[in-house]
Design a protein around this nucleic acid. Structure first.
Lengths: 160, 160
DNA sequence: ATTTTTGCAAAGTTTTTGCATAATA
DNA sequence: TATTATGCAAAAACTTTGCAAAAAT
């Protein structure tokens, strides 16, 4: 992330507008999310990382903060089927969720940051009278380079 | 579902091929799924419905069966963010997951049964060397008819 | 007979809640 | 000082597991 304090400011504003405060704990949580933007962290992951900077924090606070950030659309709460919710910062203007490539061979969980769905969203609106506000698109499959030998890919690489 | 016993047969074959049996309990669970194809049932939902026909069943059996069916790609295990896994019969030939329209206004969880992603999957393969085996596409938004007044839509209607 | 499956209860995970204390406006 | 937020521990919600009995091949 390029401009951390600008991001924090924006999030602070968003919190204030809704009657919430940017407490120390909340700020640290947001910083951890900014520093691990490509990692799809679980609440537990965030908790561990926050503890390094602020050991007094409670797990409940992490859950409550992530829930709050999700409510304000600052993060997206996702579930990739492994039994834990994962949290992902939304882009700068609460942009649509990016797409995911999930490799069954090596477990990579990569992102496509372009929005490929504009046309389909127009079609949904036209055909079903449904106004799209957000979307989720995951592709499950395998990288060709994974198919044969052992996989050399790193997890959670942003591919686009 | 039009031809229940043909479907059951197909699923039975799939189980047998993998060394599993179609027990009474498993068959009833599959029937419940067939009868509620458009409903995105949770394990608990399935349990309740199965109990009506076969009260001796245990919740663990339902979980184990749904897990097994997911493994064999007969059902898809989905998570829409409400903390429970939901199960959806895949189509007749283990076809790709259908797409979802999730209305934030009325809570409708509808399906688009056509596959709109063929082109994008080719693009993923071309651009990222990623072979797509399955996908997930959800649109979150509102039905126009929902936007103003109270909503008259029924939940879980298949729209296509 | 051997293997698989089941039901029950217990245990495991993840997440939420209650409440007294602390921080903030 | 009134409100909001926190930490802890307890509870809740969902899912998985161990095991002896039952069912199936």
């Amino acid at each position: 992330m390029l401009n951390v304090s600008a991001e924090i400011d924006k999030i602070k504003r968003s919190l204030m507008e809704n009657g919430y405060k940017l407490t120390t704990q909340r700020e640290i949580i947001v910083r951890v999310l900014l520093e691990n933007e490509r990692d799809h962290l679980s609440a537990e992951d965030v908790y561990m990382l926050v503890k390094e900077k602020f050991p007094e924090i409670g797990l409940a606070t992490v859950y409550r903060t992530l829930e709050l950030l999700a409510e304000l659309q600052i993060v997206a709460k996702m579930n990739f089927g492994d039994g834990v919710a994962r949290f992902d910062l939304r882009g700068h203007d609460h942009e649509h969720m990016h797409h995911h490539l999930i490799c069954q061979h090596c477990g990579a969980l990569d992102e496509i940051k372009e929005d490929w769905l504009t046309e389909l969203e127009e079609r949904v609106e036209r055909e079903f009278g449904f106004k799209v506000l957000d979307h989720r698109l995951d592709f499950i499959g395998t990288y060709k380079e994974c198919s044969n030998e052992e996989c050399k890919r790193k997890k959670d690489k942003v591919v686009s």
